[in-house]
Design a protein around this nucleic acid. Structure first.
Length: 275
RNA sequence: AAUGGUACAUGA
C-alpha cells in the first residue's frame, strides 16, 4: 500500500500523471485479486498531479468519482489547484461546500484559499478569512503566517507586516527566511528601501544566511527606485558570498539598467549571462 | 518516512 503510494507519487512528481492514473485504473479493475482498492491517499496524489499540470477539470472529474471517500486534503488540493488557475470563485464555492460534507477546513485549506485570493487582488477577503480561521481556533503555522505577511505586503501594508514580525518574535515564534524576504519585498514595493535593508540586516542577525531570493528582492527594490549603483553593488556582494545569480537576478538588473538608459551595461550583463 | 499550502524579474 505504502509502496504503491510512493510509486504513484514518484510518477506524478516526474510528470507521468497519466501513468499513475492508469496504474490506479488497473488497481480498480483487479481489485481484490492482487491488491486492495486504491485508497484516498492514492487518489489525492493523482488529483494533485493533475492540478499541478493545470488539468483541473480532469482533477474535478476524478474528484466526483471518489467524492464519498474524499477528505480535507482532497479539498485543499482542489482549492489550491483552482486558485492557481484563476478559478478562485469556484475555489471559494468548494470551500463553502466542505462543512456540508462534514469536512472541516484546516490550516492548509485556509492557507491555500487565502493565498489564492491575495494573488487575484482580493486582499480584503483574504484577511477576513485569516481572522475567521483564528476564530475557529485553527492556529496559524509558519507558512500561514508567511502567507498573511504576503497578503499585508501586497496590500501595501508593510508596516502592518512588520508588526506581525515583531509579534512573532515577541511570542517566541522564530520567523524563517521567507518571512523576512516577504517583508523586504513589501517595503521594496512601497519604495521604502531603508526599511527593506533594515529587515535584511535583522534577517542576518537572526542567523539566516541571505539566499538568492533575498538579494533579488533588494536588487529589484533598488532597480525600481532607479538606484542602479546600489543594485549593482548588491549583485557584487552576492558574488562575493558565493551565491550564483539566476535568470531572475539578471532580468531584474537588466530591466533596471535599461529603464534608466544604461543600455550598454545591460548588454554586458546579458553577455555575461550567456556564459 | 506514501498525499495538500508560503517569498523575487521581464514580456504578451
Amino acid at each position: 500500500e505504502v509502496d504503491c503510494g510512493s510509486l504513484l507519487n514518484e510518477l506524478c512528481k516526474s510528470g507521468n500523471v497519466d501513468e499513475a492514473r492508469s496504474l490506479i485504473r488497473w488497481m480498480e479493475e483487479y481489485e481484490g485479486e492482487r491488491f486492495g482498492k486504491p485508497n484516498t491517499i492514492m487518489y489525492n496524489i493523482i488529483i494533485d498531479g493533475l492540478c499541478k499540470e493545470s488539468r483541473v477539470n480532469e482533477a474535478l472529474n476524478l474528484f466526483q468519482e471518489i467524492i464519498d471517500i474524499s477528505d480535507v486534503i482532497t479539498f485543499s488540493i482542489l482549492i489550491d489547484g483552482l486558485c492557481k488557475n484563476e478559478r478562485t470563485k469556484e475555489a471559494h464555492d468548494m470551500f463553502e461546500l466542505m462543512p456540508q460534507r462534514g469536512i472541516q477546513p484546516d490550516v492548509f485549506t485556509y492557507s491555500s484559499l487565502i493565498h489564492g485570493l491575495c494573488s487575484c487582488g482580493q486582499g480584503k477577503e483574504a484577511i477576513r478569512l485569516f481572522n475567521e480561521m483564528i476564530d475557529h481556533d485553527i492556529s496559524p503555522d509558519m507558512p500561514a503566517l508567511n502567507i498573511l505577511m504576503d497578503v499585508l505586503c501586497k496590500q501595501e501594508m508593510a508596516k502592518e507586516g512588520h508588526k506581525l514580525l515583531d509579534l512573532m518574535i515577541q511570542r517566541g515564534v522564530k520567523p524563517d527566511i521567507i518571512t523576512f524576504c516577504t517583508l523586504m519585498d513589501g517595503y521594496c514595493l512601497q519604495g521604502q528601501m531603508k526599511e527593506a535593508v533594515n529587515v535584511f540586516d535583522s534577517m542576518v542577525d537572526s542567523g539566516h544566511e541571505p539566499n538568492v531570493y533575498s538579494y533579488n528582492i533588494l536588487i529589484n527594490g533598488y532597480s525600481k527606485d532607479r538606484k542602479l549603483d546600489e543594485a549593482k553593488q548588491l549583485f557584487e556582494d552576492m558574488h562575493r558570498k558565493g551565491l550564483t545569480p539566476n535568470t531572475i537576478t539578471y532580468s531584474t538588473l537588466m530591466d533596471g539598467l535599461c529603464k534608466v538608459g544604461r543600455v550598454v551595461e545591460a548588454q554586458e550583463l546579458f553577455n555575461e549571462m550567456q556564459t
